[in-house]
Design a protein around this nucleic acid. Structure first.
Lengths: 143, 143
DNA sequence: CTCATTGCAAATGGTTTGCATTGGG
DNA sequence: CCCAATGCAAACCATTTGCAATGAG
């Protein structure tokens, strides 16, 4: 796993909204910047034991509000988060290892717009999730 | 709201799986049978005060496992449930009143199958949710 | 200097569980 | 009769909040 430095959009998310760049927040952002996969709030707390639990939850919430981190509600278990890579996208969730991925598909958006007639009321947003067995887990299975 | 009697599929869901048709369970099923819209477990508990909270949660869980009730995880707030009306379907969630609806769209399924190539790994399932302002709320707004 | 932010610990809230009692088959 | 199911209360667990202390700008 290669370090790529702090993600500038995470820092900007706080600065642009007038939040202070305190050292606990910087620690959280530095840590999340390395994340290539989905994570839970509690997991981040375990990985950064000397940042207060409340601060971790509060910082993640700020990042979600700013749109640079996505919150994924799962049918069971606590919510998973992931760094937003694309402007608008959907998620994949590996039911084996729990990793959250991201994908964008213009096709889907077009269909969904056409689908408006099937839906009673005004469509304000949508969410699409794919439950998958990811490539790594498939490989692991073959081995 | 017109009573339509107990939904036979809810009763069958318990019988077929070897669960007893006790009177608390029958109370829950009778009550849910009248539900035209989404509900939360806690809401059912309020509406049936003399059925133990634990029994309500346990019964709903049985019905979800049997596939006759759907569990809808929302990005915030507790899960909502709804009676399953179609074999395979997706949900609409009104962000004003919180009502959960159901719709089926064969088109979507076809597209999704074609989309497999965009997704790394094996697709095992999917979920689509629409966040809407439902017709009732739109009307209410106009008034 | 001042006020946003922190960190702890306590509170919260929905859900689950342990266990003695009950009642369906 | 017997074991599954109940109901209460306590336990759980992730998340939130109150509040005094702290530190960024």
């Amino acid at each position: 796993m290669m370090a790529q430095g702090v993600r500038p959009d995470l820092l900007a998310a706080l600065e642009d909204r007038g939040h202070r760049l305190t050292s606990p927040r910087r620690r959280v952002i530095d840590h999340l910047s390395e994340k290539l996969e989905g994570f839970s709030a509690e997991q981040v707390h375990e990985e950064l034991p000397d940042v207060g639990r409340a601060t971790i939850y509060r910082t993640i919430k700020l990042l979600v509000e700013a749109g640079v981190v996505c919150k994924l509600a799962l049918p069971n278990g606590s919510p998973k988060y992931s760094l937003a890579r694309f402007e608008h996208h959907h998620h994949t969730f590996c039911i084996r290892c729990g990793n959250v991925g991201e994908f964008r598909a213009a096709t889907i958006e077009r269909i969904i717009r056409a689908l408006g007639t099937d839906i009673p009321g005004e469509i304000l947003g949508h969410r699409i999730e794919f439950y998958i067995c990811c490539e790594q887990c498939l490989e692991r299975e073959e081995a």
